[in-house]
Simulated scan of single mutants.
Amino acid sequence: METKEVIIIGGGLSGIMTARTLMKKGVEDILIVEKSRSVGGRLATRRIGDGKADHGAQFFTVRSRELQEEVEKWLEGGWVKRWFGSPYPRYTSTDGMNSLAKQLAGTIPVKLNTRVSSIRDGRDGPLEVELETGEKILTRHCVVTAPVPQALQLLTGTSRLRAPSISFAPCFVGMFTFDGASRIPSPGHLDEELPDGVERVVDHYKKGISSTVTVSVYMTGDWSKRNERLEDDDILGEIQKVAENYLERGSAVTGAQLKRWKYAEAETVVRTPFVEMGEEGRIILCGDAFLRENDGAGRTRFESAYLSGISAGKRLAEKRKGI
């Protein structure tokens, strides 16, 4: 049976930053377990024909000195660029947001396409992480970065369970290819004066990550909730009507895809960057809904996920030293 000192469930930004922080502290026996075929979570980019589209986070802002110092390095390395916005610049990856996640993950050990079915907290022994394949991995510490509703399903029966209650709004994203230009003005992002139910519209050709015109249309949480029982084709058809508003004369929609984000944004947040659970607090929950006490934005975002992962990693490093 495989044994690891730390298992991190979820390869999104919080999981990556937890791992990076631990490795800087000298903890090498780490494994990220990720259900998808790539790390990144909502730092998600999809190839569509000859082009590509971000369909999760489109950009991020910076309020903390901690993240700003890192962003300056990313800018210097060509990983990200300033896209638009003042007084808070909107930064985005130069090659799609998933590429930034992969660069941050670096050489961190990751087990992809792998779902966890349960986490058992033995009172006198190691934690037992069971995969859907039936394989079990033993570990001293476990960090769960999945959205809290999913985390609770994994932790059923865990002793001293004190998980916060957080609800999430869904988001439906339509991705469309055009055979000509769009009417979305440069730099390729709209979030004002949009039709009812639409949160934002993005042209990835003008954003600079796609060689062909691809457009993402994000629907609001309320719209997505009202329509979540519809079939995918029906949802996509409604979103395509929005996309067609941005066709230049002579252009047409040539392809369409849908992404359902079930846990897109937390409707409530936790004013602590992580929560310790289980026997001796060996299970840590963190993620973008776990905000540091001094967080001025008060909402889930790239930066809250980034800082939550760092805080969880630092706390685990302290626990190893008995602090």
Rank of each mutant, 00 (worst) to 15 (best):
residue 60 F to H: 03
residue 142 C to I: 00
residue 247 L to V: 11
residue 60 F to P: 01
residue 193 E to N: 14
residue 165 S to M: 12
residue 191 D to H: 14
residue 40 G to K: 01
residue 302 F to I: 08
residue 68 Q to C: 06
residue 35 K to G: 02
residue 205 Y to E: 12
residue 194 L to T: 04
residue 63 R to T: 06
residue 299 R to E: 08
residue 67 L to I: 07
residue 180 G to M: 11
residue 234 D to V: 01
residue 292 R to N: 10
residue 14 S to L: 07
residue 244 E to W: 01
residue 121 D to A: 11
residue 216 S to A: 15
residue 223 W to F: 14
residue 258 L to H: 03
residue 226 R to D: 09
residue 119 I to W: 00
residue 9 I to H: 11
residue 322 G to E: 12
residue 318 E to I: 04
residue 77 G to A: 15
residue 251 S to L: 11
residue 233 D to I: 01
residue 54 D to E: 06
residue 195 P to I: 11
residue 301 R to H: 10
residue 70 E to C: 10
residue 20 R to G: 08
residue 217 V to W: 00
residue 111 K to W: 13
residue 223 W to D: 04
residue 287 G to A: 11
residue 283 I to S: 12
residue 174 G to P: 06
residue 254 T to E: 12
residue 239 I to V: 08
residue 78 G to A: 05
residue 128 E to T: 02
residue 212 T to Q: 12
residue 250 G to E: 08
residue 2 E to W: 03
residue 141 H to W: 15
residue 1 M to C: 10
residue 43 L to K: 05
residue 279 E to V: 13
residue 209 I to L: 06
residue 311 S to L: 06
residue 3 T to Y: 14
residue 48 I to Q: 07
residue 158 T to A: 13
residue 113 N to R: 15
residue 297 A to M: 03
residue 290 F to I: 01
residue 316 L to N: 05
residue 187 P to Y: 12
residue 22 L to F: 06
residue 19 A to M: 06
residue 34 E to M: 05
residue 273 P to D: 13
residue 170 P to E: 10
residue 120 R to H: 06
residue 133 T to P: 03
residue 269 V to P: 02
residue 180 G to E: 09
residue 307 L to G: 05
residue 313 G to E: 04
residue 84 F to C: 00
residue 172 F to N: 01
residue 53 A to M: 01
residue 157 G to T: 12
residue 179 D to F: 07
residue 184 I to D: 11
residue 287 G to H: 09
residue 33 V to A: 10
residue 14 S to T: 04
residue 118 S to F: 04
residue 260 R to A: 00
residue 258 L to C: 07
residue 181 A to V: 10
residue 193 E to I: 00
residue 165 S to L: 14
residue 261 W to Q: 07
residue 295 D to N: 12
residue 155 L to M: 15
residue 27 V to M: 13
residue 317 A to I: 02
residue 79 W to D: 10
residue 311 S to A: 15
residue 105 A to F: 03
residue 196 D to L: 05
residue 162 R to M: 09
residue 211 S to E: 12
residue 249 R to P: 02
residue 310 I to H: 02
residue 9 I to C: 13
residue 162 R to G: 09
residue 308 S to R: 00
residue 145 T to H: 12
residue 287 G to T: 04
residue 108 I to G: 07
residue 309 G to C: 09
residue 235 I to R: 05
residue 271 R to C: 09
residue 179 D to L: 09
residue 320 R to F: 13
residue 63 R to Y: 10
residue 28 E to Y: 06
residue 69 E to S: 15
residue 87 P to Q: 14
residue 305 A to R: 00
residue 119 I to C: 03
residue 37 R to F: 12
residue 117 S to F: 00
residue 185 P to Y: 14
residue 169 A to W: 00
residue 50 D to Q: 14
residue 130 E to K: 05
residue 68 Q to D: 09
residue 157 G to K: 13
residue 248 E to K: 13
residue 68 Q to F: 13
residue 112 L to I: 03
residue 95 D to K: 12
residue 249 R to H: 09
residue 248 E to A: 15
residue 242 V to D: 07
residue 92 T to L: 04
residue 302 F to L: 13
residue 226 R to G: 03
residue 1 M to F: 09
residue 218 Y to V: 03
residue 277 M to T: 02
residue 214 T to G: 06
